[in-house]
Amino acid sequence: MQTVAVVTMVRDDAFFLKAWLRHYGEMFGRQNCYVINHGYGEEVAELAKGCNIIGIPGDPHKNFDVKRWSLLNNLFGGLRRYYNHVIVGDVDELVVVDPDAGVNLLQWLEKAETDRVYTPVGLEVIHRIDIEDQPADDMILGPRRHVRIAPHYSKPSIVSTPAKLSRGGHFAQYPKLHTPDELYLLHLKFCDFGAYTGAMDRRNAVSAEVGVGFKQASIGRHWFAEARGEDREVFEGFAELPMQEGFDLRPVRRKMHRSFKARGDTGYFEFDRPNYKGQYLLPERFSGIF
């Protein structure tokens, strides 16, 4: 058995795919990376050379997320027969190990138990455009050091036992919660103002082709222009988030465990996802991870 495979689906998002490839491709080897190329994008195919590229049609569909996670569940379910662990998530989500642990993610997974699903604490990397003017093209962590807690992105993203993930990958049909202190999922949607506006323009164009509003579609609300808001105002608002001292997120994990419960009768399990209003300065030790 190989140690780990990593799976994502991408359409046109070159900025995030480059970061995904730097992080996972260099650590695990591109032969263990599976990139679903939604729409047969030529740039995606070129960037992901050496990976296992699966091209699929890119026709717009109001139930895009349902179709996407049906495919992802079946793909990573099959890969689990060949790998001890499978990491699955969006192209702008990267799982990392705190450098204080003394190992990288591959080394951590080589010793990790294989009969569970791991849920890293979600952190959203935010671009403080008032004080961070260095580009994040070739390296994101370093030029970007500010994060906010993102419970919505505390996802069961490392699957090491039979389990099904919900649409969006937010919930698992797995009755236990494993949240190792050293694991984080970094969400990159807001990590760069220019990358954000470009990605949102593309997603708004895709959702417009569907021909229905977000209430009638199984597509993330943020894909729709009417839910977007004013871009610069969103990023300027990050400066107003209260700065938190230190970087101890054990209380966040404890809250996750205290509220962990069945999600109705769906077979999935969930925890409360409060709205944390503060921001943290990511410790210097994280700089250069990707």
Score class of each variant (00 low, 15 high):
residue 106 L to V: 00
residue 65 D to V: 05
residue 78 G to K: 13
residue 42 E to G: 00
residue 99 P to T: 03
residue 117 V to E: 11
residue 115 D to C: 06
residue 70 S to K: 13
residue 86 V to L: 00
residue 95 V to R: 00
residue 129 I to W: 07
residue 66 V to Y: 13
residue 96 V to D: 02
residue 47 L to H: 02
residue 35 V to D: 05
residue 135 P to W: 11
residue 116 R to L: 14
residue 127 H to G: 06
residue 15 F to A: 15
residue 126 I to T: 07
residue 127 H to L: 04
residue 81 R to W: 06
residue 121 V to L: 14
residue 105 L to C: 00
residue 70 S to D: 14
residue 131 I to K: 15
residue 74 N to C: 13
residue 48 A to W: 10
residue 86 V to W: 01
residue 14 A to G: 03
residue 30 R to M: 10
residue 60 P to R: 12
residue 82 Y to E: 14
residue 81 R to E: 07
residue 40 Y to G: 13
residue 48 A to P: 02
residue 51 C to S: 08
residue 90 D to N: 14
residue 28 F to D: 01
residue 56 I to N: 03
residue 39 G to H: 09
residue 34 Y to M: 03
residue 61 H to R: 14
residue 46 E to N: 10
residue 46 E to T: 11
residue 63 N to V: 08
residue 119 T to V: 12
residue 135 P to Y: 10
residue 49 K to M: 10
residue 125 V to Q: 04
residue 23 H to F: 04
residue 90 D to C: 08
residue 116 R to D: 06
residue 37 N to D: 06
residue 60 P to L: 09
residue 65 D to E: 15
residue 108 W to G: 01
residue 90 D to G: 13
residue 29 G to L: 05
residue 122 G to S: 00
residue 128 R to F: 05
residue 17 L to N: 10
residue 62 K to Y: 08
residue 133 D to I: 13
residue 69 W to K: 11
residue 91 V to Q: 01
residue 109 L to A: 03
residue 15 F to R: 14
residue 110 E to S: 09
residue 39 G to N: 09
residue 93 E to Y: 01
residue 99 P to V: 06
residue 124 E to I: 04
residue 60 P to H: 12
residue 70 S to E: 08
residue 104 N to G: 08
residue 42 E to Y: 05
residue 82 Y to W: 11
residue 76 F to I: 02
residue 60 P to G: 12
residue 56 I to V: 15
residue 43 E to M: 12
residue 31 Q to D: 15
residue 34 Y to F: 15
residue 108 W to L: 01
residue 71 L to F: 14
residue 135 P to T: 11
residue 117 V to Y: 04
residue 106 L to G: 00
residue 102 G to L: 10
residue 51 C to Y: 09
residue 48 A to G: 05
residue 109 L to E: 04
residue 52 N to Q: 15
residue 57 P to H: 08
residue 97 V to K: 09
residue 94 L to F: 01
